[in-house]
Amino acid sequence: MALLTLIWLLALGMTFAALSWMSVLLAMRLWHDRRAARRAAARKSVEQALIALLLGKCDLQRDLGPFAGRARLMSECLLEFLSLVRGADRTLVLAAFDSLGVPATLRRRLTRGSAAGRRACIEALAAFPSPETEAALRQVVSSGAPQLRLAALKSIAEAGGHVPLGRVLADLKVGALPLSGLSGDFLRDRVAAEPGEAISALEDDLLPSTLRVLVLDALGSAGDYAALDILAAHVGAPDAEVRAAAVQALGRLKHPAARPHLARALQDPDSQVRAAAAEAVGDAGLDGLADDLCAGLEDAVWRVRFQAAAALRKLGAPGLQRLQHAAREASDVASRAASLALAEQGLPS
């Protein structure tokens, strides 16, 4: 009976496979435990050597030398250390790594081995600016996976290299860089470094809305008044998210010339923009718009009422007076928004 035999073979085969899989796992565990112990010991030794170095009691060749060729270990220890310590001690440790030839080891590792190891080496290389380092990192930028490219660009910028904003935006647009919060963060740094480039990037009509929002947001934080005109121009953009981002950025810029634009945004048909505008008025401290904010207390959308009340609170005396007045006299919704805003600050209505 061939079918029956086949079924039994299948059953026994699977059971056997599972059992041997289990034995392999157990054996690998034993091996892995040993390797992990060795790795932890190596890491401990490097850390001890670093501490000895800080106290001036380290014999570099003897204490750190044996590990200098292990790129991932060295970069992880270094990153851990640099996340804790700066100042003279940082310089001391970097000089020691340099004298042992660690940067060259890390550079060689950029094109080899696991992605996690590569990423650690890329990040650690930011601490060793040199033409060779920059060349090696640029190599990653032109050929690596998106995550690694982003890490490499960050390291180049951190090491003082030039990373043109236009290039970053172009890469983001075609997906060569991941469109993530991390790249958003990086973009913010680049914009802060070169607000002029950001302004010309915004003048390009082909810039997609998602990126436009990121650049607008970054420009607001960068605090360059030269951005005022381009931000104001975006308050009239067709996309509501772009308008909201422009309005928020104007708020953070805190320039009085933003007043007419924010006044217009307070009347925007989109509630998201109105709420952003109310918040921006508070951020910028434009008490000349206090009455416009009072109108926002009557808005049909809770978010706008909430932001209007919060903004009035931020405006100080003129805002508080209006809030107290609204709490007593205004319509139900406005009075409630006003009195809650006051109560949250522990103030009487």
Binding site: S83, V85, R86, G87, D89
Partner: peptide, 8 residues
């Protein structure tokens, strides 16, 4: 804030 300067 970390990273900090130990001498400081």
């Amino acid at each position: 804030a970390k990273p900090f300067n130990p001498d400081e």
